[in-house]
């Protein structure tokens, strides 16, 4: 019973669409209001990262199960330049753009599970999950 959908992240307006879609799924999964807000904010950060640093990508939004718990999983993928030093990229304040450097490190704090795979020159894959309480 897994529902999944792919959303493109190619233009600025797509970030808003991703946020709205993630909000709807978060409500259906039964996340609390605060957790909805956290996961939508994480979606916004990661979608903008894909757009700004990789020139675009896509996100897969799905409902996952663990026993009787339900959760929301987002998988962001892009074919951008990749991240050479993942540990450094997850540090607060580290940025190559002109952001605050909170996108990755901050998003990690907003979700329950966070996995990052990246190959320089090939792209980045970020999987995050938020479980309903």
């Amino acid at each position: 019973m897994t529902t999944a959908e792919e959303l493109p992240i190619n233009v600025n307006g797509d970030v808003v669409l991703v946020r709205q879609r993630v909000r709807t799924v978060a409500v259906n999964v039964g996340l609390s209001l605060v957790d909805q807000t956290k996961v939508v904010t994480a979606a916004s950060e990661l979608a903008r990262n894909a757009l700004v640093y990789a020139g675009g990508g896509q996100v897969r939004v799905e409902v996952v199960h663990n026993g009787v718990r339900q959760g929301l999983r987002m998988t962001f993928s892009d074919n951008g330049p990749g991240i050479p030093d993942i540990e450094q990229a997850l540090t607060d304040g580290w940025t190559t753009g002109n952001g605050l450097g909170l996108g990755l490190s901050g998003s990690r704090r907003l979700v329950d599970e966070f996995a990052l795979e990246s190959t320089p020159g090939e792209g980045t894959l970020i999987t995050v999950t938020k479980w309903a309480r």
Binding site: T37, T41, E45, D92, L100, L102, S105, L110
Partner: peptide, 14 residues
Amino acid sequence: MRPAVAITLVELGL
């Protein structure tokens, strides 16, 4: 600012 937004901002580190 909504409570959920404030809590999220704090968690985000902003």
